[in-house]
Amino acid sequence: MPGVLDGVTVIELAGIGPGPFCGMMLADHGARVIRVERPGNAGRFGEGGNRDILNRNRERIELDLKNPEAIAQIKELAKSADALIEGYRPGVLERLGIGPDVLLAINPKLVIGRMTGWGQEGPMAPLAGHDINYIALSGALHSYGRKGEKPTFATNAVGDFGGGGMMLAFGVVSAILHVRSGGIGQVVDCAMVDGAAILSAMTYTFLANGQWQDERGVNLLDSGAHFYDTYETKDGKWVSLGSIEPQFYALLLEKTGLDADADFAQQMDQSRWDELKGRMAEVMLTKTRDEWCTIMDGTDICFAPVLSLTEAPKHPHVAARGTFVEDAGIVQPAPAPRFSATPADPVKMAGW
């Protein structure tokens, strides 16, 4: 069955991380994504790149972009493509002879998605960087971590993938919709520093309204509260609690046996959070993770066990939804989100 992006053709100039993630998102949902690799590039995760989940569901061609004949092929592909995505530093595409001016002259309806850390302009635009640097400059990293401890980053999720690849996919699809409604092609300047900043919009809202201290680990959603945190269990594993609303908090106190303790009655008294967190931690250590699951599963406490990467695909809820799939012996996240009328095809790792 055709996916929701059936009929969309995207040229992907191969890179790593956020660019391929964008290509995966588009390809998962039916776009024809042609990944342009360097000749002889076996990929970073096995022969032909076939062990890299980010490169699934693609067509693949090999072109040496330093060769004029290869550049001519890119121009030919661009004539009928809807979009081209790339993750080079600013100016590289222009030096190759396939910058936006050239490509838009060939195809005025082309969307050119440019994935960088610092953006196409600005004092830091030409500099190298990685996820940790982009989220640091956006203010996001400052908010992640425990009180009095150093900032803790979320394994490339905020900069590279959420603020980068997924933002680029949104931008490219939006620009294609603009073209199909009668508009012209254009450049999508996707900078991970911008993406990390916009992912922090809620935090900046709280800060602007005096509901957030500009300090990590002391606020409602950053591990400051005793009812919104992770806790170690008797067997050395972990559980997560998110009992913000009063009715959910009441259930938490009931199931932990703390409902008769008057100290826990003033849920939002921040002056007590550190003390209550310590006492909650003592309670959580009295049972194993599975014992807490037996007590709390099926309730509105807002509870979940902290599962490892190998445990998560086997959880009954995750398994029932098919959140993970397996192809070519690789367990991997299934395409998301889900469309009722145009579901994504099964993932394809083989054939690279």
Rank of each mutant, 00 (worst) to 15 (best):
M115Y: 04
G117H: 08
G117Q: 06
W118K: 02
W118A: 00
E121G: 00
G122I: 09
P123H: 00
A125V: 15
A125C: 12
P126H: 07
L127W: 14
A128D: 12
G129E: 10
G129K: 07
D131W: 15
D131K: 12
I135G: 01
I135C: 06
L137G: 04
S138T: 05
S138C: 06
G139Y: 09
A140M: 08
H142T: 08
H142I: 09
S143R: 08
Y144T: 10
Y144L: 14
G145K: 11
G145M: 11
G145S: 12
K147N: 12
K147W: 12
K147R: 14
E149I: 13
E149L: 15
K150I: 15
K150Y: 14
T152D: 14
F153I: 05
A154W: 11
T155H: 14
T155L: 13
V158C: 08
D160E: 11
G162Q: 07
G162D: 10
M167S: 02
F170S: 08
V172T: 10
V173R: 00
S174D: 02
A175S: 13
I176W: 14
I176F: 14
L177V: 11
V179H: 10
R180C: 13
R180T: 13
S181W: 12
S181L: 13
S181Q: 15
G183A: 07
I184H: 10
G185C: 09
Q186R: 03
Q186N: 04
V187M: 00
V187Y: 01
V187P: 01
V188K: 00
C190F: 02
C190M: 07
A191F: 10
M192H: 06
V193G: 02
G195S: 04
G195T: 02
I198A: 08
L199E: 01
A201V: 12
A201S: 13
M202D: 11
M202L: 12
L207P: 00
A208R: 05
Q211H: 03
W212A: 02
E215Y: 08
E215A: 05
E215C: 09
V218K: 11
N219Y: 10
L220F: 06
L220H: 05
L221P: 08
L221H: 12
D222I: 06
D222T: 08
S223H: 15
S223A: 15
